[in-house]
Design a protein around this nucleic acid. Sequence first.
DNA 1: TATCCCATGTAACGAGTTACATGATTCT
DNA 2: AGAATCATGTAACTCGTTACATGGGATA
Lengths: 188, 188
Amino acid sequence: MSAPDISLLGYALLGLLGQKESSGYDLRKTFALTPMQSFSDSPGAIYPALKRLEKSGLIRGKVEQGSGLRRRQVFRLTAAGTAALKSWLRKPPTHDDVIRAVDEMMLRFSFMDVVLGPEDSHRFLVAFEGELMSYVPKLREYLAAHGAKLPLSAKLALECGIRRYEAHWQWAKDAQAAYRSFQTQCDG
Amino acid sequence: MSAPDISLLGYALLGLLGQKESSGYDLRKTFALTPMQSFSDSPGAIYPALKRLEKSGLIRGKVEQGSGLRRRQVFRLTAAGTAALKSWLRKPPTHDDVIRAVDEMMLRFSFMDVVLGPEDSHRFLVAFEGELMSYVPKLREYLAAHGAKLPLSAKLALECGIRRYEAHWQWAKDAQAAYRSFQTQCDG
DNA sequence: TATCCCATGTAACGAGTTACATGATTCT
DNA sequence: AGAATCATGTAACTCGTTACATGGGATA
Protein backbone atom coordinates (compact mmCIF):
# COMPACT_ATOMS: atom_id res chain seq x y z
CA MET A 1 0.00 0.00 0.00
CA SER A 2 1.18 3.49 0.97
CA ALA A 3 2.46 5.40 -2.08
CA PRO A 4 0.16 4.43 -4.96
CA ASP A 5 2.43 5.95 -7.61
CA ILE A 6 -0.24 7.29 -9.94
CA SER A 7 0.52 10.12 -12.34
CA LEU A 8 -1.57 13.25 -12.62
CA LEU A 9 -3.04 11.91 -15.83
CA GLY A 10 -3.87 8.72 -13.97
CA TYR A 11 -5.78 10.64 -11.33
CA ALA A 12 -7.56 12.68 -13.98
CA LEU A 13 -8.72 9.43 -15.53
CA LEU A 14 -9.79 8.03 -12.17
CA GLY A 15 -11.71 11.21 -11.44
CA LEU A 16 -13.52 11.19 -14.76
CA LEU A 17 -14.29 7.49 -14.47
CA GLY A 18 -15.61 8.18 -11.00
CA GLN A 19 -18.24 10.41 -12.54
CA LYS A 20 -19.12 8.29 -15.53
CA GLU A 21 -17.90 5.03 -17.00
CA SER A 22 -16.12 5.71 -20.25
CA SER A 23 -14.02 4.26 -23.01
CA GLY A 24 -10.53 5.44 -23.79
CA TYR A 25 -11.95 7.28 -26.73
CA ASP A 26 -14.55 9.04 -24.59
CA LEU A 27 -11.79 10.19 -22.26
CA ARG A 28 -9.71 11.43 -25.16
CA LYS A 29 -12.71 13.44 -26.35
CA THR A 30 -13.11 14.95 -22.93
CA PHE A 31 -9.50 16.10 -22.94
CA ALA A 32 -9.85 17.39 -26.48
CA LEU A 33 -13.16 19.21 -26.24
CA THR A 34 -13.64 20.48 -22.70
CA PRO A 35 -11.56 22.97 -20.70
CA MET A 36 -9.43 20.00 -19.62
CA GLN A 37 -7.31 20.71 -22.65
CA SER A 38 -4.20 21.06 -20.56
CA PHE A 39 -4.14 17.27 -20.70
CA SER A 40 -2.95 15.60 -23.85
CA ASP A 41 -5.54 13.63 -25.75
CA SER A 42 -2.95 11.54 -27.57
CA PRO A 43 -3.58 7.80 -27.64
CA GLY A 44 0.03 7.22 -26.69
CA ALA A 45 -0.74 8.81 -23.34
CA ILE A 46 -4.25 7.64 -22.54
CA TYR A 47 -4.25 3.97 -23.51
CA PRO A 48 -1.05 3.05 -21.69
CA ALA A 49 -2.28 4.99 -18.65
CA LEU A 50 -5.54 3.05 -18.66
CA LYS A 51 -3.59 -0.18 -18.89
CA ARG A 52 -1.49 0.76 -15.91
CA LEU A 53 -4.57 1.57 -13.87
CA GLU A 54 -6.18 -1.71 -14.85
CA LYS A 55 -3.02 -3.65 -14.04
CA SER A 56 -3.01 -2.01 -10.61
CA GLY A 57 -6.60 -3.10 -10.12
CA LEU A 58 -7.96 0.43 -9.86
CA ILE A 59 -10.20 0.22 -12.90
CA ARG A 60 -11.77 -2.61 -14.84
CA GLY A 61 -12.61 -2.66 -18.53
CA LYS A 62 -15.44 -4.44 -20.28
CA VAL A 63 -15.63 -4.92 -24.03
CA GLU A 64 -18.99 -3.72 -25.25
CA GLN A 65 -20.64 -5.81 -27.89
CA GLY A 66 -24.05 -5.17 -29.32
CA SER A 67 -24.67 -6.50 -32.80
CA GLY A 68 -23.20 -3.93 -35.17
CA LEU A 69 -20.94 -2.15 -32.68
CA ARG A 70 -17.28 -1.58 -33.09
CA ARG A 71 -15.10 -3.02 -30.42
CA ARG A 72 -15.14 -0.55 -27.57
CA GLN A 73 -13.88 -1.05 -24.06
CA VAL A 74 -15.67 0.73 -21.26
CA PHE A 75 -13.85 1.29 -17.98
CA ARG A 76 -15.19 1.82 -14.52
CA LEU A 77 -13.64 2.22 -11.09
CA THR A 78 -13.14 -0.77 -8.83
CA ALA A 79 -13.46 -0.48 -5.06
CA ALA A 80 -9.70 -0.07 -4.86
CA GLY A 81 -9.90 2.64 -7.51
CA THR A 82 -12.50 4.58 -5.58
CA ALA A 83 -10.37 4.25 -2.46
CA ALA A 84 -7.27 5.54 -4.28
CA LEU A 85 -9.23 8.46 -5.67
CA LYS A 86 -10.61 9.33 -2.26
CA SER A 87 -7.26 9.22 -0.54
CA TRP A 88 -5.79 11.46 -3.23
CA LEU A 89 -8.63 13.93 -2.83
CA ARG A 90 -8.29 13.93 0.93
CA LYS A 91 -4.64 14.98 0.95
CA PRO A 92 -4.55 18.42 2.52
CA PRO A 93 -3.01 21.15 0.33
CA THR A 94 0.58 21.86 1.31
CA HIS A 95 2.87 24.80 0.74
CA ASP A 96 4.72 22.73 -1.81
CA ASP A 97 1.50 21.99 -3.70
CA VAL A 98 0.86 25.71 -3.99
CA ILE A 99 4.30 26.31 -5.51
CA ARG A 100 4.61 23.29 -7.74
CA ALA A 101 1.17 21.83 -8.28
CA VAL A 102 -1.62 24.40 -8.32
CA ASP A 103 -3.11 22.73 -11.35
CA GLU A 104 -3.21 19.41 -9.58
CA MET A 105 -4.98 21.03 -6.65
CA MET A 106 -7.61 22.49 -8.94
CA LEU A 107 -8.11 19.13 -10.59
CA ARG A 108 -8.58 17.57 -7.18
CA PHE A 109 -11.03 20.22 -6.18
CA SER A 110 -13.11 19.76 -9.30
CA PHE A 111 -13.74 16.11 -8.38
CA MET A 112 -14.22 16.72 -4.69
CA ASP A 113 -17.94 17.44 -4.48
CA VAL A 114 -18.95 14.23 -6.14
CA VAL A 115 -16.51 11.91 -4.43
CA LEU A 116 -16.19 13.36 -0.94
CA GLY A 117 -19.00 15.87 -0.56
CA PRO A 118 -19.34 19.61 0.04
CA GLU A 119 -17.97 19.61 3.59
CA ASP A 120 -14.61 18.31 2.43
CA SER A 121 -14.63 20.73 -0.49
CA HIS A 122 -15.13 23.58 1.91
CA ARG A 123 -12.39 22.37 4.21
CA PHE A 124 -10.07 22.16 1.25
CA LEU A 125 -10.81 25.76 0.32
CA VAL A 126 -10.05 26.96 3.84
CA ALA A 127 -6.71 25.15 3.86
CA PHE A 128 -5.88 26.38 0.37
CA GLU A 129 -6.63 29.93 1.36
CA GLY A 130 -4.40 29.51 4.39
CA GLU A 131 -1.45 28.49 2.25
CA LEU A 132 -1.97 31.42 -0.10
CA MET A 133 -2.32 33.81 2.80
CA SER A 134 1.16 32.87 3.95
CA TYR A 135 2.78 32.60 0.51
CA VAL A 136 1.56 35.69 -1.32
CA PRO A 137 3.11 38.15 1.16
CA LYS A 138 6.44 36.33 0.84
CA LEU A 139 6.34 36.83 -2.90
CA ARG A 140 5.40 40.50 -2.47
CA GLU A 141 8.33 40.91 -0.08
CA TYR A 142 10.68 39.32 -2.56
CA LEU A 143 9.46 41.67 -5.27
CA ALA A 144 9.85 44.69 -2.99
CA ALA A 145 13.36 43.63 -2.01
CA HIS A 146 14.70 42.63 -5.41
CA GLY A 147 12.38 44.32 -7.90
CA ALA A 148 14.53 47.42 -8.34
CA LYS A 149 17.52 45.50 -9.63
CA LEU A 150 15.55 43.22 -11.96
CA PRO A 151 15.05 43.92 -15.66
CA LEU A 152 11.58 45.32 -16.31
CA SER A 153 10.30 42.17 -17.99
CA ALA A 154 11.55 39.96 -15.16
CA LYS A 155 9.92 42.24 -12.61
CA LEU A 156 6.66 42.18 -14.54
CA ALA A 157 6.79 38.40 -14.91
CA LEU A 158 7.10 38.11 -11.15
CA GLU A 159 4.24 40.55 -10.71
CA CYS A 160 2.19 38.34 -13.01
CA GLY A 161 2.94 35.26 -10.96
CA ILE A 162 1.91 37.06 -7.80
CA ARG A 163 -1.32 38.31 -9.32
CA ARG A 164 -2.15 34.80 -10.39
CA TYR A 165 -1.84 33.66 -6.80
CA GLU A 166 -3.89 36.64 -5.65
CA ALA A 167 -6.59 35.65 -8.11
CA HIS A 168 -6.56 32.14 -6.64
CA TRP A 169 -6.78 33.63 -3.18
CA GLN A 170 -9.78 35.79 -4.00
CA TRP A 171 -11.38 32.85 -5.73
CA ALA A 172 -10.86 30.67 -2.65
CA LYS A 173 -12.72 33.23 -0.56
CA ASP A 174 -15.57 33.53 -3.05
CA ALA A 175 -15.82 29.77 -3.40
CA GLN A 176 -16.12 29.40 0.37
CA ALA A 177 -18.97 31.87 0.27
CA ALA A 178 -20.60 29.83 -2.48
CA TYR A 179 -20.49 26.74 -0.25
CA ARG A 180 -21.90 28.66 2.69
CA SER A 181 -24.87 29.87 0.69
CA PHE A 182 -25.30 26.36 -0.72
CA GLN A 183 -25.37 25.08 2.85
CA THR A 184 -27.91 27.70 3.85
CA GLN A 185 -30.17 26.62 1.00
CA CYS A 186 -30.03 23.02 2.19
CA ASP A 187 -30.78 23.97 5.78
CA GLY A 188 -33.57 26.38 4.84
CA MET B 1 19.08 23.22 -37.72
CA SER B 2 15.33 23.84 -37.42
CA ALA B 3 13.87 22.24 -34.28
CA PRO B 4 16.51 22.61 -31.56
CA ASP B 5 14.79 20.18 -29.22
CA ILE B 6 15.54 21.88 -25.93
CA SER B 7 13.42 21.25 -22.85
CA LEU B 8 11.86 23.98 -20.78
CA LEU B 9 14.51 23.41 -18.15
CA GLY B 10 17.12 23.75 -20.88
CA TYR B 11 15.75 27.13 -21.89
CA ALA B 12 15.57 28.25 -18.28
CA LEU B 13 19.26 27.43 -17.96
CA LEU B 14 20.08 29.22 -21.21
CA GLY B 15 18.15 32.27 -20.04
CA LEU B 16 19.88 32.39 -16.69
CA LEU B 17 23.28 31.84 -18.25
CA GLY B 18 22.46 34.63 -20.68
CA GLN B 19 22.23 37.00 -17.74
CA LYS B 20 25.20 35.74 -15.75
CA GLU B 21 27.71 32.96 -16.13
CA SER B 22 27.12 30.35 -13.45
CA SER B 23 28.04 26.95 -12.17
CA GLY B 24 25.55 24.12 -11.89
CA TYR B 25 25.43 24.74 -8.21
CA ASP B 26 24.67 28.43 -8.70
CA LEU B 27 21.78 27.52 -10.96
CA ARG B 28 20.48 25.00 -8.46
CA LYS B 29 20.54 27.73 -5.82
CA THR B 30 18.59 30.02 -8.11
CA PHE B 31 15.90 27.41 -8.54
CA ALA B 32 15.89 26.69 -4.83
CA LEU B 33 15.88 30.22 -3.44
CA THR B 34 14.13 32.54 -5.90
CA PRO B 35 10.55 32.50 -7.17
CA MET B 36 11.75 30.12 -9.87
CA GLN B 37 10.92 27.33 -7.46
CA SER B 38 8.60 25.70 -9.94
CA PHE B 39 11.79 24.24 -11.40
CA SER B 40 13.41 21.35 -9.64
CA ASP B 41 16.80 22.03 -8.12
CA SER B 42 17.76 18.38 -8.07
CA PRO B 43 21.24 17.55 -9.37
CA GLY B 44 19.75 14.72 -11.37
CA ALA B 45 17.93 17.29 -13.46
CA ILE B 46 20.40 20.17 -13.72
CA TYR B 47 23.73 18.46 -14.37
CA PRO B 48 22.49 16.21 -17.18
CA ALA B 49 20.67 19.18 -18.72
CA LEU B 50 23.88 21.23 -18.68
CA LYS B 51 25.73 18.36 -20.28
CA ARG B 52 23.17 18.13 -23.07
CA LEU B 53 23.44 21.86 -23.72
CA GLU B 54 27.22 21.64 -23.79
CA LYS B 55 27.14 18.66 -26.12
CA SER B 56 24.86 20.63 -28.45
CA GLY B 57 27.39 23.45 -28.40
CA LEU B 58 25.01 25.95 -26.81
CA ILE B 59 27.03 26.52 -23.66
CA ARG B 60 30.66 26.03 -22.74
CA GLY B 61 32.03 25.15 -19.30
CA LYS B 62 35.34 26.17 -17.76
CA VAL B 63 36.77 24.59 -14.65
CA GLU B 64 37.71 27.30 -12.20
CA GLN B 65 40.95 26.80 -10.37
CA GLY B 66 42.52 29.21 -7.96
CA SER B 67 44.82 27.79 -5.28
CA GLY B 68 42.55 26.48 -2.57
CA LEU B 69 39.33 26.33 -4.57
CA ARG B 70 37.13 23.33 -4.92
CA ARG B 71 36.53 22.16 -8.40
CA ARG B 72 33.76 24.26 -9.88
CA GLN B 73 32.70 24.50 -13.48
CA VAL B 74 31.36 27.80 -14.74
CA PHE B 75 29.18 27.83 -17.84
CA ARG B 76 28.49 30.59 -20.32
CA LEU B 77 26.54 30.85 -23.55
CA THR B 78 28.23 30.29 -26.88
CA ALA B 79 27.19 32.23 -29.96
CA ALA B 80 24.98 29.30 -30.95
CA GLY B 81 23.46 29.32 -27.48
CA THR B 82 22.61 33.00 -27.70
CA ALA B 83 21.06 32.38 -31.11
CA ALA B 84 18.96 29.49 -29.79
CA LEU B 85 17.80 31.58 -26.85
CA LYS B 86 16.85 34.46 -29.13
CA SER B 87 14.90 32.32 -31.54
CA TRP B 88 12.98 30.77 -28.64
CA LEU B 89 12.19 34.19 -27.24
CA ARG B 90 11.07 35.47 -30.61
CA LYS B 91 8.43 32.80 -31.13
CA PRO B 92 5.08 34.58 -31.10
CA PRO B 93 2.62 33.35 -28.46
CA THR B 94 0.04 30.99 -29.93
CA HIS B 95 -3.39 29.88 -28.82
CA ASP B 96 -1.89 26.56 -27.91
CA ASP B 97 0.76 28.20 -25.75
CA VAL B 98 -1.97 29.95 -23.81
CA ILE B 99 -3.74 26.67 -23.08
CA ARG B 100 -0.80 24.40 -22.46
CA ALA B 101 2.22 26.54 -21.73
CA VAL B 102 1.44 29.78 -19.93
CA ASP B 103 4.31 29.17 -17.59
CA GLU B 104 6.71 28.81 -20.48
CA MET B 105 5.44 32.07 -21.92
CA MET B 106 6.06 33.86 -18.65
CA LEU B 107 9.55 32.41 -18.45
CA ARG B 108 10.21 33.65 -21.95
CA PHE B 109 8.90 37.07 -21.13
CA SER B 110 11.09 37.33 -18.05
CA PHE B 111 14.22 36.96 -20.19
CA MET B 112 13.00 39.10 -23.04
CA ASP B 113 14.11 42.56 -22.00
CA VAL B 114 17.73 41.60 -21.59
CA VAL B 115 18.06 39.42 -24.66
CA LEU B 116 15.78 41.10 -27.21
CA GLY B 117 14.95 44.52 -25.78
CA PRO B 118 11.80 46.38 -24.69
CA GLU B 119 10.25 46.70 -28.15
CA ASP B 120 10.02 42.93 -28.53
CA SER B 121 8.75 42.60 -24.97
CA HIS B 122 5.98 45.03 -25.76
CA ARG B 123 5.11 43.24 -28.99
CA PHE B 124 4.91 40.00 -27.06
CA LEU B 125 2.48 41.53 -24.59
CA VAL B 126 0.23 42.77 -27.36
CA ALA B 127 0.13 39.33 -28.99
CA PHE B 128 -0.41 37.63 -25.64
CA GLU B 129 -3.30 39.94 -24.85
CA GLY B 130 -4.78 39.16 -28.25
CA GLU B 131 -4.80 35.45 -27.53
CA LEU B 132 -6.41 35.97 -24.14
CA MET B 133 -8.97 38.32 -25.63
CA SER B 134 -10.17 35.53 -27.90
CA TYR B 135 -9.84 32.65 -25.42
CA VAL B 136 -11.38 34.02 -22.23
CA PRO B 137 -14.83 34.62 -23.80
CA LYS B 138 -14.83 31.06 -25.11
CA LEU B 139 -14.26 29.77 -21.59
CA ARG B 140 -16.98 32.06 -20.23
CA GLU B 141 -19.35 30.72 -22.88
CA TYR B 142 -18.52 27.15 -21.96
CA LEU B 143 -19.22 27.91 -18.31
CA ALA B 144 -22.51 29.60 -19.18
CA ALA B 145 -23.57 26.67 -21.36
CA HIS B 146 -22.51 23.80 -19.12
CA GLY B 147 -22.18 25.32 -15.66
CA ALA B 148 -25.69 24.43 -14.56
CA LYS B 149 -25.20 20.72 -14.97
CA LEU B 150 -21.74 20.60 -13.37
CA PRO B 151 -21.14 19.74 -9.72
CA LEU B 152 -20.46 22.87 -7.69
CA SER B 153 -16.79 22.14 -7.19
CA ALA B 154 -16.27 21.47 -10.88
CA LYS B 155 -18.03 24.69 -11.77
CA LEU B 156 -15.94 26.61 -9.27
CA ALA B 157 -12.73 25.02 -10.53
CA LEU B 158 -13.58 26.20 -14.02
CA GLU B 159 -14.37 29.64 -12.68
CA CYS B 160 -10.94 29.64 -11.06
CA GLY B 161 -9.23 28.75 -14.31
CA ILE B 162 -11.05 31.57 -16.08
CA ARG B 163 -10.17 34.08 -13.41
CA ARG B 164 -6.56 33.09 -13.70
CA TYR B 165 -6.65 33.90 -17.39
CA GLU B 166 -8.45 37.16 -16.66
CA ALA B 167 -5.70 38.05 -14.23
CA HIS B 168 -3.16 37.37 -16.96
CA TRP B 169 -5.17 39.53 -19.31
CA GLN B 170 -5.33 42.48 -16.96
CA TRP B 171 -1.65 42.04 -16.25
CA ALA B 172 -0.86 42.09 -19.95
CA LYS B 173 -2.63 45.44 -20.27
CA ASP B 174 -0.89 46.91 -17.25
CA ALA B 175 2.47 45.62 -18.42
CA GLN B 176 1.97 47.30 -21.78
CA ALA B 177 1.29 50.54 -19.98
CA ALA B 178 4.50 50.04 -17.99
CA TYR B 179 6.45 49.77 -21.25
CA ARG B 180 4.76 52.83 -22.66
CA SER B 181 5.69 54.94 -19.67
CA PHE B 182 9.19 53.48 -19.76
CA GLN B 183 9.39 54.53 -23.39
CA THR B 184 8.16 58.01 -22.58
CA GLN B 185 10.87 58.36 -19.95
CA CYS B 186 13.52 57.46 -22.49
CA ASP B 187 12.17 59.87 -25.07
CA GLY B 188 11.72 62.72 -22.57
C1' DT C 1 36.66 14.84 14.88
C1' DA C 2 32.12 15.24 13.56
C1' DT C 3 29.05 17.64 10.86
C1' DC C 4 27.52 20.62 7.76
C1' DC C 5 27.75 22.93 3.23
C1' DC C 6 29.99 23.12 -1.37
C1' DA C 7 29.94 20.83 -5.83
C1' DT C 8 29.45 17.31 -8.91
C1' DG C 9 27.93 13.29 -10.74
C1' DT C 10 25.37 8.55 -12.06
C1' DA C 11 21.95 4.74 -12.49
C1' DA C 12 17.32 2.87 -12.52
C1' DC C 13 12.95 3.94 -13.40
C1' DG C 14 8.49 6.05 -14.95
C1' DA C 15 5.83 8.40 -17.93
C1' DG C 16 4.64 11.41 -21.74
C1' DT C 17 5.63 12.70 -26.83
C1' DT C 18 5.66 11.75 -31.54
C1' DA C 19 4.77 8.96 -35.03
C1' DC C 20 3.16 5.06 -36.98
C1' DA C 21 -0.30 1.35 -37.67
C1' DT C 22 -4.74 -1.02 -38.07
C1' DG C 23 -9.43 -1.95 -39.00
C1' DA C 24 -14.49 -1.05 -38.63
C1' DT C 25 -18.28 2.13 -39.60
C1' DT C 26 -20.70 6.02 -41.29
C1' DC C 27 -21.20 9.87 -44.44
C1' DT C 28 -21.17 11.93 -49.09
C1' DA D 1 -15.81 4.61 -53.88
C1' DG D 2 -13.44 7.67 -50.98
C1' DA D 3 -13.16 10.33 -46.89
C1' DA D 4 -13.85 11.15 -42.35
C1' DT D 5 -14.63 9.43 -37.86
C1' DC D 6 -14.64 5.76 -34.39
C1' DA D 7 -11.51 3.15 -31.55
C1' DT D 8 -7.48 1.06 -30.16
C1' DG D 9 -2.88 0.12 -29.94
C1' DT D 10 2.65 0.08 -30.11
C1' DA D 11 7.64 1.50 -30.48
C1' DA D 12 11.45 4.69 -30.02
C1' DC D 13 12.92 8.37 -27.69
C1' DT D 14 13.57 11.97 -24.22
C1' DC D 15 13.59 13.79 -19.99
C1' DG D 16 12.72 14.37 -15.15
C1' DT D 17 12.47 11.83 -10.55
C1' DT D 18 14.48 9.48 -6.81
C1' DA D 19 18.13 7.79 -4.66
C1' DC D 20 22.70 6.95 -4.13
C1' DA D 21 27.68 8.22 -4.23
C1' DT D 22 31.83 10.92 -3.75
C1' DG D 23 35.05 14.05 -1.87
C1' DG D 24 37.02 18.72 -0.50
C1' DG D 25 36.57 22.57 2.68
C1' DA D 26 34.67 25.05 6.61
C1' DT D 27 32.80 25.24 11.27
C1' DA D 28 31.93 23.69 16.00
